[in-house]
Nucleic acid binder design. Structure first.
Lengths: 232, 232
DNA sequence: AGGGCTTGTCATCAAATTGTAATAGTGGGT
DNA sequence: ACCCACTATTACAATTTGATGACAAGCCCT
């Protein structure tokens, strides 16, 4: 279970865009197009954070935030305000109403997730994620453990993330550059060849457990995780 | 083969957002903040599609698109214009300058990728991620696998690309020079005879699987991929 | 500060791939 | 049957690409 984020934004295109970014960054999302819809969602669900558009039809984002901050049930949910550029003077008012941060539209995915991360780390202790199983391997993101049957596999952090990514994206070839993006994080300045080394480390770590051939090389293209043995 | 998309947009936040969405949707991206940067990228790379902001500093997106459409090298690269809302009247002008489509900002990831998919399928079917099937062969660009029934075929990178191209462009004869352009990439200086060799390698690789006669020679014209047996 | 890990980078080795040239083979027209 | 243009096939050397082991810098914990 990852952190759940409620997106309150009236423009559907923008809402979907935000939701998309959050989902790719492993957050669960809830969407509402106005305060009313948001209220009804909040009746059954408790998000870990709210992204609130400044301008909303009916009750404005500011007022709604104030409302949330008055209710004992929702008071502790952090709110990030989304403001359009030019409304920046209003940021003071935004924070006054109780929001923990604000982000100016348009924003880059990096910016958005960075803010969210900071706030979540401060407020919500990290949530759990689903176990994955493939090719005799079992990986538990919560406890950072990988096992083959009863035996536990010893992996470094990077190898763990790499394996996790592979196990959740099977049968598909990823180029080194894409792996760097997805496993190391976008905009990192790392040699592509470094990926080879971590692949090697991962393979080496798995070797003693008789689960070989899962991490496959596709010459000229990249690497692939698959239970099917590769031709060759 | 994943398609490569060039994003020309001056606002970095928007550019990153678009690029992020595209990458998550398994496209490769190139980014340029103005026409000049785009030009220099186009000097050594050939994207499969261009996303062009309407407003650009210096040369506008419209003018730049027109420029691309005048150059024989870039003429065939499809362009999608990004227009801000309210500039919609301009869409006619946008299409007039040679763009194949336009998308209004703000847009949802779904909308953007849908448009791209439609255009790519039309213009560059081999740049899509879709599985292809023909003549008993099955090729999956995603996992880089080719199989006949349950048996997997082992192909080198070039043979894979060649086969992929053929399977997505059936029943049509391509001259060696055209194949070089489409499969090896424009502006490569390679002997035409080299194509023969790769055709040979491809045929040889397929031979053991009883799927012969798919890659056909058309004397004096080039090669063709077809399920129908050649006359002879 | 020191020890144990982890991580990114390199240098080197092995293997696969690729372009070219040389040679053999084909088909079709005369 | 013969020739010519065009294609097939083979061999090969250069180049690319991936695997691997070693290493030093950075971290964290004590």
């Amino acid at each position: 279970m990852t952190a759940k984020i409620l997106v309150v934004e009236d423009e559907s295109a923008v809402r979907e865009m935000i939701s998309f970014v959050l989902k790719q960054s492993d957050y669960d999302t809830l969407e509402a197009e106005d305060a009313e819809e948001a209220r009804s969602l909040l009746a059954d669900e408790t998000p870990d954070l709210v992204l609130m558009d400044w301008m909303l039809p009916g009750i404005s984002g500011v007022e709604f935030t104030r409302e949330l901050k008055h209710d004992a049930v929702t008071r502790d949910i952090p709110v990030i305000m989304l403001t359009a550029r030019g409304e920046e003077d209003d940021k003071v008012r935004g924070l006054e109403c109780g929001a923990e941060d604000y982000v100016t539209k348009p924003f880059s995915p990096r910016e958005l997730t960075a803010r969210i991360k900071v706030i979540l780390r401060r407020v919500a202790p990290h949530a759990t994620e689903e176990k994955v199983e493939a090719g005799g391997l079992e990986l538990d993101p919560t406890s950072f453990r990988v096992s083959v049957g009863a035996k536990e596999v010893d992996l470094g952090p990077t190898e763990f993330r790499l394996l996790h990514f592979f196990m959740t994206h099977r049968d598909k070839v990823y180029s080194r550059s894409r792996l760097l993006d997805r496993v190391w994080g976008a905009n990192v300045f790392i040699e592509e060849r470094t990926v080879d080394v971590h692949i090697r480390r991962l393979r080496k770590a798995l070797e003693p457990y008789g689960v070989e051939g899962l991490v496959q090389t596709v010459r000229g293209a990249g690497y692939r995780f698959s239970e099917r043995q590769a031709a060759r």
